[in-house]
Nucleic acid binder design. Structure first.
Lengths: 242, 242
DNA sequence: AAGTGGTCTAGACCACTAT
DNA sequence: TAGTGGTCTAGACCACTTC
């Protein structure tokens, strides 16, 4: 344990997670922090940071004075809401082999509400990219991304099927930082239902999101719809912050 | 800065958040970690931990080599999904003055799926508590909580309008730890719509949750419905774990 | 080059759980 | 009472941004 990047903490975290999944702690009890620190040749602080992240993800839980234990229910969570970054990765985590279709790429002026969220003038142009994520031939996720044209260095085409954050980092020269998301319940319109291959009026979750770059500048307004029968979101709600 | 409990970290965090909300850092720039540590008489580690939590909550963001800054978009989030603990508190954070109605308390044997989630026999009895949260006279949240009767030391009545976690800690002698939640889109049934005061078929978010105690034992199966027009959930999706 | 946040260490003491 | 996780310190060095 000497190489950096990934950080020592990340390496310890990965080691622990791998051992847990392998069933290496068959009684569900994880060695004490001091023991792990000695064995891995790192400080207790580093071990603690790794365990804290695993606890936050629901992989382990800790009881002061007693020990640290494998958290079986948390291990079953495949798509943790706060950690979603690429829908392809989410589908892969569910055991699907995903594919992507770029349905359309259009350029027009922004609606007022979109322009407000993106902090641009309402007569500025935005490029709208509509994509469909499928597992086999079943559509699962429909996303509509709107990016101010002024941020895109090269014109987008239907060939641009890479994940959104990759597109923005490659073609907008910005590092993607986070999404601010609203969760909205909807009944799918005829058009949306057609695209997702379900009946009109089917209840669905919709994410209304604004994506920000490393300088906290809004770079994308995204709207996504999900097939509840194929992809269901889970999360852990904890008592305290960490 | 000497008293413990709340911890130094929590005190520093509270101080920073209070100062931020007061507009004390009017240029959006937060003093450096070293500066804060010196001013507050704590170690840099303590300041860093406080800032890390604020960053995770979306209150601030950090740029290596540049500094730490107030995160205006994140400040507007009132109900962060992962932090919800009591619906009354959520409604208060939205500026409402909430009230609670216990609609019914019944005891019966568990459905199979509920019994499975609660790890009890399907012929064990469970007590079902249905509650409605209102702001003024408008219903906002409808929740159905199911607790194995064997865990409850005193019979529940419609007078038990305290938050669920409080009820469990008082009457079940367990410390509540976390919820494992599924987010489900639904169209409200006639009965549910009546109780929430909206039209039948209105799209709504439903939480299907299992609550665990400090020993990782499932103690409650909860189902909750929300009026989207009065309460909308937001969250931050970040690139990395922390 | 100076200043910032990011990582890591070694060690101290406290609060809690188990036995 | 021994062992565990929880908190905190003081200091080191690194990576990055800004000027």
């Amino acid at each position: 344990m000497i190489a950096r990047n990934p950080s020592l903490t990340d390496q310890v975290k990965a080691y622990l997670k791998e051992t847990i999944i392998r069933g290496g702690y068959d009684d569900g009890r994880i060695p004490s922090e001091i023991e792990l620190a000695a064995k891995l040749g790192v400080s207790r602080t580093t071990v603690r940071e790794a365990l804290s992240r695993l606890e936050h993800e629901g992989t382990v839980y800790r009881k002061q004075g007693a020990g640290t234990f494998v958290n079986e229910p948390g291990l079953q969570i495949k798509s943790r809401l706060e950690e979603i970054w690429s829908y392809e990765a989410v589908l892969r985590d569910h055991g699907y082999t995903p594919s992507v279709q770029v349905l359309s790429v259009t350029t027009e002026t922004a609606e007022q509400s979109v322009a407000d969220d993106l902090a641009i003038d309402s007569d500025d142009a935005i490029v709208t990219i509509t994509k469909l994520f499928l597992e086999d031939d079943k559509p699962v996720v429909l996303t509509i991304n709107r990016i101010p044209t002024q941020y895109v260095h090269r014109e987008a085409t239907t060939e641009d099927d890479e994940p959104l954050y990759e597109f923005i980092e490659t073609h907008c020269d910005r590092r993607f930082a986070y999404f601010l998301s609203e969760i909205v319940p909807v009944a799918l319109t005829e058009h949306q239902a057609d695209q997702l291959g379900v009946a009109q009026g089917t209840p669905a979750i919709c994410f209304e999101e604004t994506g920000f770059d490393q300088d906290n500048v809004p770079v994308v307004r995204a709207t996504s719809y999900f097939r509840d029968d194929l992809l269901r979101f889970r999360l852990i709600r904890r008592r305290s912050g960490v």
